[in-house]
Design a protein around this nucleic acid. Sequence first.
DNA 1: AATAAACTGCGATCGGTGTTCGCAGTATTA
DNA 2: TAATACTGCGAACACCGATCGCAGTTTATT
Lengths: 234, 234
Amino acid sequence: MTEHEPRPTVWSRPERGTRGPAPERDRRQITAAAVALADADGLAAVSMRALARELGTGPASLYRYLASRDDLLDLMADAVTGEVDLSAAPGGDWIGDLTALALQAKAAHARHPWLLELTAQRGSVLGPNAIDYLDHALAILTHAPGTSSQKLETIGFVGGLVTLFARHEATTTAGGATPSAQAAHLAAVAAEGRHPHVLAALATAGPAPSDGPADRDALFERLLRRILPGLLGS
Amino acid sequence: MTEHEPRPTVWSRPERGTRGPAPERDRRQITAAAVALADADGLAAVSMRALARELGTGPASLYRYLASRDDLLDLMADAVTGEVDLSAAPGGDWIGDLTALALQAKAAHARHPWLLELTAQRGSVLGPNAIDYLDHALAILTHAPGTSSQKLETIGFVGGLVTLFARHEATTTAGGATPSAQAAHLAAVAAEGRHPHVLAALATAGPAPSDGPADRDALFERLLRRILPGLLGS
DNA sequence: AATAAACTGCGATCGGTGTTCGCAGTATTA
DNA sequence: TAATACTGCGAACACCGATCGCAGTTTATT
């Protein structure tokens, strides 16, 4: 076992001590700059050096606030989770309420495409905002059927569906050149004759219909409303 | 727009020219070594240097076979796709056949956990094996209801469900210390009193039941059998 | 008031990464 | 035979995350 034991998360370390001079920056500020950087140029553009440059300091200084770049990624993820509005009190319709919550989460992914990449390469660490989110989702499911375990798994599964749809919408919306090149290559290969079904499907199915955001949300909502009752006893 | 136009995939470039001396290696060999490396020590362990060392050559030599590390990742993904057995001819039960195919894909993910990380950070590029897979899936859906577009989207969605379940199973199976540390932290936070629903859920739901692989497959199969009819007209 | 302790900012640096360049050697083509 | 196009690869480039140690600053203790 080469595993190093699980270091405590960013949030278990105190933001600052009480002894020295007041820090010139704080985690919120650093996180905001990192999110802005990722929004602008993607997750790869968020290097400690670039971030330090953005903040007008040296790279080494950032390590007074973060133990590692992974800490920064955790903070970024939780910051986006905090964008979800949890103020709406749960009504009687738990399916509707959970669906609305999922739609909000999907919208957050649309605003910050790099979130997909982030949560993929890094198992989600529950920050304070994520815990609030989880508590809210459980509140919504209070009067829903099913055991607590089932509810927890359902919330996780809905989160997975959110990422699934977010990915799909991200690749079909602003993809630009990627899908056409892929489609061309696929058509060329299919034309060679060894993939009759692909050929037929490409002939039948025209180019992308390109639904609007409203249509996409409606599709997602319909799917959730159909699946959710089955997941929780009903 | 800082986007560089879509470079052709690995497979559109010829494996080798006709002029010079015979290459000492080929892509299949290199890909196999990379997969072995990833299986053993994770995707991060697959660096060009480590791979070259494994093959007994210099890092620069690899660039005679691959234009970039991304090419290597594409080859690795397609190699794993090639592990899926497509020899079984489609029977009349398209739901059963598609479910069996999905179970195979899920098993491949279990054998190569790094696949999740790979497909996440890199939009799937359709290699030859992936095209074979797609053609086979479309063959299964020949007599299923729905338009060609619906069938293509269904296949993609099923693929997404595979990754979702693979991720879930990967994190709950060999996770080790991660979940317990997370759970402890969560319990501590919930005990502070501001997250009553989380607290209640943790009290009710005991530790992980830890199902066997058969149970997990059965769960996945049940979900697919319930969802699939709804996706394709029915 | 004097001292000790703990903290901040950060230049310099380490080991690692993907990738490129140029050159010597080799096989094919004209 | 000469030109051409390839192979293998050592050296190097730019960048990355992270660490070390030091000067300066603030708080806590005596």
